[in-house]
């Protein structure tokens, strides 16, 4: 299949596909939707840099046909901020997981969002540490069985929206992989936003989480997401089950 100039796969190292992710994982969908967004925004392979951290989502950087950086665990935001500081003309996009951005990277989430550099962070939130087999993350829901919460996760989740909106200026978008159009739209809005933008993509991990929690297949997990979330517009604050954008 030949690549056309208008084809978004010009942003993907297609020879490396299908990639290392499990069959049924939707991180590849995030890869494709992000590339589509870059095409829609008329980015090119010379003015865009992709930075990711450690985890299954973190492996995504190596699949973009862009100059890319795979950082150490949790430090993706300051690395991205450093790149942008050295060359403000670059489009700097971060894609990483909930463990990387919210747990190990928590302090940097607070301070990078506070300093407000013009970069976009896309957080694939599957509420688990997938790559290492399924330990709980700060986004694991209370009561969920994981390897490190055999009697059910015991803590409240970290309120990511709360962290973002505590800033004077913010862009917080919540979307999901069950709706590709919404995902694409939110990613584009986030990138267009001048300043720090954070997109939380609600996802799932069947192999390291779903199986343990009793889901029979990927379809059931996606179905659960589809049932749980509702897309809303024009809200100041997103409810727990709402997808949309809040900004100031």
């Amino acid at each position: 299949m030949t690549k056309k100039a208008t084809d978004y796969t010009k942003f993907i190292k297609t020879k490396k596909l299908p990639g290392l992710w499990c069959v049924g994982c939707s991180i590849p969908a995030l890869l494709h939707q992000s590339a589509k967004a870059f095409l829609d925004l008329k980015f090119n392979n010379k003015n865009t840099v992709l930075i990711s951290g450690i985890g299954c989502t973190g492996r995504i950087a190596g699949y973009f046909d862009l100059d890319s950086v795979h950082t150490i665990h949790g430090r993706v935001l300051p690395v991205a901020e450093g790149v942008k500081s050295a060359n403000p003309k670059l489009n700097v996009v971060v894609i990483s997981g909930d463990g990387d951005l919210i747990s190990m990277g928590g302090n940097h989430l607070l301070n990078t969002s506070r300093r407000n550099p013009d970069i976009t962070a896309i957080c694939y939130n599957n509420e688990i540490y997938g790559l290492t087999g399924g330990q709980m993350s700060p986004e694991t829901r209370k009561g969920n069985i994981t390897i490190t919460s055999p009697k059910g996760a015991m803590f409240n989740r970290l309120n990511v929206q709360g962290v973002l909106i505590s800033n004077e200026k913010y862009f917080y978008g919540r979307t999901s992989i069950f709706d590709m159009d919404h995902l694409n739209k939110v990613i584009k809005s986030a990138i267009k936003h001048k300043g720090f933008s954070f997109v939380e993509v609600m996802g799932y991990c069947f192999e390291s989480d779903g199986r343990r929690r009793g889901f029979k297949n990927v379809g059931e997990m996606v179905g659960a997401l589809r049932e749980k979330y509702k897309i809303v517009e024009g809200k100041r604050l997103l409810g727990e089950n709402e997808l949309g954008i809040v900004r100031k």
Binding site: R75, A80, E81, G82, A86
Partner: peptide, 26 residues
């Protein structure tokens, strides 16, 4: 010189790593 006081030393060196990759002696 382009200057950012970081939230901790790990952020400081990470910012330098990013800036170096971005073309700056850091």
């Amino acid at each position: 010189v382009n200057f950012i006081q970081a939230e901790d030393e790990i952020a400081a060196i990470s910012l330098c790593i990013g800036a170096s990759l971005g073309g700056a002696k850091s």
